[in-house]
Simulated assay, not measured.
Amino acid sequence: MKALIALEDGTIFEGQSFTGEGEAIGEIVFNTSMSGYQEVLTDPSYTGQLVTMTYPLIGNYGVNPDDMESSKVHPMAFLVKEYNPIPSNYRSTQSLADFLIEHGILGVQGFDTRALVKHIRTVGAMKCIVSTKDTDPESLVKRAKEWTGLVGQDMVKRVTCTEPYGWADNQPVPGSDFSTAKCDAENPLNVVAFDFGLKYNQLRELTARGCNVQVVPATTDAETVLAMNPDGIFLSNGPGDPEGVEGVVDTLKTLLGKKPIFGICLGHQMLSLAYGGSTYKLKFGHRGGNQPVKDLTTGKVEISSQNHGFCVDMKSLSEDEVELTHINLNDNSCEGMRHKKYPAFSVQYHPEHAPGPHDSLYLFDRFINMMRDQG
């Protein structure tokens, strides 16, 4: 089935749908990972986006329930060079096409993904519409231009949980105040995790290190969190513009200095706003499993997984209060920071990512040590 990909600047690509009829509108972005497409698809940070994979063959190992990073698919559409309809992997339980169809997501193949990525890298991430229903290029470009975009929008409210839950037996269990959060440690630490669009592997990594993890909605106020008396507070990743998220910054300002805080991705950006800083939109973002990051505190370079379109402006933060700890070696942008007065640190990338680099798992250990030191 013919599918048109129309960018707001008038650029058109023609492909074929491998999931039947459909249409989607969002911001067109690309991911350079060679594997892990199921993790990409179930990452809430991709809400409002159309994802293009740069690796040319996608779908060869299928999909399985164990690699879900959330309960559903979040990109509005999934674009690939060539889809493999016959998966071969002992863990596979269904094909990628069936998985996308089950979640109502349009999949498109058979176009020059290299040309699209090169265009985005030159012009920047843009509004885009993909459709099998409307095949009029002029109409599609007009509709893409009219879309609101991500800047200034609160995308977190689309993905955060509506009720608190605990993490136990590798799954979410409804409950509050650590009533259903369980780990096997003898002396567990209690961690409250703000769900801005979190990935399950963040909860797995914390639980594996002896934490009872209680997940709360993004709108949870500071008083509620402090009443739970956690040993630490975790701020998850999430989609969109951090400056468009409502209410969270004031909550974090109240929590600073009260408990150790560890933030990832959007959580990192929200912390910077609580510190009094600002963020800006990157030209085409960092998305993939091979981004080089340097830890300025040790001099070591780690290969990281990333997925973000916004970045912390370190110039907006006081050097007397906030220290830059990590930089991206491709563009020297901020990848990590720590507060000099409060027990709080954060990174822009994803140390929990799997499959992919494990170079950054030490950050979870750092959080554990911080909580034990404060205790």
Score class of each variant (00 low, 15 high):
Q94C: 11
N64Y: 12
M370L: 14
V249T: 15
L198H: 08
V312R: 01
T207Q: 11
T32P: 09
S346E: 07
G240H: 05
E82V: 14
M314F: 10
W147V: 02
N229H: 14
N307M: 14
A354R: 14
N60P: 08
D43A: 09
R372E: 12
Y46T: 08
F78H: 11
R209V: 07
G36K: 07
Y200F: 14
I303W: 04
D9G: 01
A354W: 11
S45P: 01
R158N: 14
E321M: 13
L361S: 05
D154E: 07
T297L: 13
D231E: 11
E146N: 09
G26P: 00
L41N: 06
T325I: 03
K300M: 11
S92F: 02
Q171V: 13
T93Q: 15
L255A: 08
N60I: 10
K315A: 15
P357D: 05
L235Q: 00
L296P: 07
A208G: 13
V156Q: 04
E323Q: 15
A208N: 15
G247Y: 06
W147Q: 05
R287Q: 11
D43R: 13
G22N: 07
D241A: 04
D365E: 14
L198K: 03
V293F: 02
H308S: 02
V301R: 07
E39F: 10
Y280R: 15
K283P: 06
T93D: 10
A97M: 07
L252N: 02
K145G: 00
G26H: 00
K81A: 14
G210R: 11
L140H: 01
D154W: 07
S316M: 06
L203M: 13
G336W: 06
I261L: 11
W147E: 03
G124N: 05
P174I: 08
G20R: 09
K2I: 10
Q49E: 12
T113R: 10
D195Q: 05
K118G: 12
M337D: 01
I129A: 00
P75A: 09
F234K: 02
S33L: 06
M1E: 07
G238N: 06
P44R: 04
I233M: 05
T254F: 05
V123G: 03
D136S: 08
L79V: 12
